[in-house]
Design a protein around this nucleic acid. Structure first.
Lengths: 248, 248
DNA sequence: GACCCGCATTGATTTAAATCAACCAACCCT
DNA sequence: AGGGTTGGTTGATTTAAATCAATGCGGGTC
């Protein structure tokens, strides 16, 4: 494996890369100082399961770097991804102490964690945290509902196009790329993980990716690097209005 | 139609039927008094569209009685229900002023509304409201994610069983029925609305309902009244663990 | 009573995606 | 260089659900 040991840089909150997007985004300097006291970093390797569904959870936290998936599994092994955790996303639910989903790292990750008890107390005293968490949760709810439309009503090809569009958009906002010109990004997921996200089999994913490539909607360099020459074309293929998406 | 005019009873918050479950659940007497000042009731008829996706929203509110659906529609008409609004559920999103979904009454309804501006101001001053709203939103997010598994991975029969289980459970908690003995409830949805919830066609819904009836999982009296002789059997058919569900 | 109308059921046929099954290509590891 | 492993592609076949198409039924109205 020869993985270089993930460099765990215990940041000052002040120069944290997710400072402006995470649950602490609204905090004032004095509030940050308190968080600084109780936070600690953990790092995980690609493939590692951070949390098992049903586990007792004694911490909550934010993704600092890397990507994880949130999945649900039925007894017979069918699995459905119900969320993708990206830098700044929040993990855990205040007021509940067992995990509802499996959380699995798909890349090496660093998390900024808080023991649940102190965090909950802090939240009760700090409206800025609760406000930001509400806002983030509402956004996640919207994302989940958008995904319900994908899962319930879209064809396999539309599902793949929708996933590409979401990743492309997310990537563009994270890296502050403009939306002019072709978009290039790396798929963070294996074909199997894509299948679990989309409610498909991995064979169908593979076929539809090939089909989109053949039709010139996307270009592939290796299996993971994707170029989207025309984002509106991709949105059309996803079955979305070719305008609504560009906000924020 | 000859509908008797829905009796709009402007309540005191004190004896409101959803007092203990809605967004105001945590409010103290003095806070309730303020809400009392700014609230107003609206009633809607079955079939009426309360809100169109994209509409400007100048109010938020709680469902007092009746049921509504939250749906998303694609340009070509495919629709997916993304939520079911029951008494005490909250409508609208503070901090956003256009609606993301269509909201349609499936029965006659009464809503307790607040103009958005005053409500947002009140929320900023009243942590009890924000706290409760966060809790409710987290619950909705869990429900949406559970539904993602249903949509993405379950068979048509399992989908129908899952829907029956959800309605049965919800009905049992609303009416404080114990869970012993057979459950009886009315389906609030037409076959088409069920199809929109489940990502199926109405024909498939009809067939699978008939199949569950033939196999003795459910009994039907007319098209809407359902009896579940053995709830655990229903949960098995839904592909759920036959235990996890009975909480709260 | 006869006629709709909106909802629901049931049957015949088609089709999109799942399943079953080879095979490929990187990459790693001795 | 050889063999294993992981992730991906591609093809043949099956199947669950969609689609196309009648038909049923209860409740209101003329």
């Amino acid at each position: 494996m020869l993985k270089e040991k993930a460099s765990i840089i215990p940041h000052e909150c002040g120069d944290c890369p997710i400072r402006h997007r995470a649950v602490c985004a609204r905090c004032e300097a004095d509030e940050l100082e308190v968080l600084d006291q109780i936070k600690y970093y953990r790092s995980y390797e690609s493939g590692q399961t951070l949390i098992w569904s049903g586990d007792h959870m004694d911490f909550v936290g934010s993704v600092v770097s890397g990507i994880a998936t949130l999945t649900q599994t039925m007894e017979d092994g069918r699995t459905q991804m119900v969320g993708l955790l990206l830098p700044s996303d929040f993990v855990g639910r205040p007021g509940r102490n067992s995990a509802a989903y499996d959380v699995v790292a798909v890349t090496d990750m660093v998390m900024c964690c808080f023991r649940k008890k102190p965090f909950e107390e802090m939240m009760a005293r700090t409206p800025h945290i609760a406000q930001r968490l509400l806002e983030m949760t509402l956004d996640e709810l919207d994302a989940a509902r958008e995904w319900m439309l994908v899962l319930g009503r879209k064809t396999a090809r539309e599902k793949i196009a929708s996933l590409m569009a979401i990743i492309a958009r997310r990537d563009a906002t994270l890296n502050m790329n403009g939306t002019r010109g072709p978009l290039v990004f790396d798929l963070p997921l294996t074909r199997e993980a894509m299948a679990d996200y989309l409610g498909l089999t991995l064979e169908t994913v593979s076929r539809q990716v090939s089909a989109l490539k053949k039709d010139g909607v996307i270009e592939l360099e290796g299996k993971r690097r994707v170029t989207v020459p025309d984002f509106n074309r991709l949105l059309e293929e996803a079955g979305d209005d070719s305008d609504g998406g560009m906000l924020i």
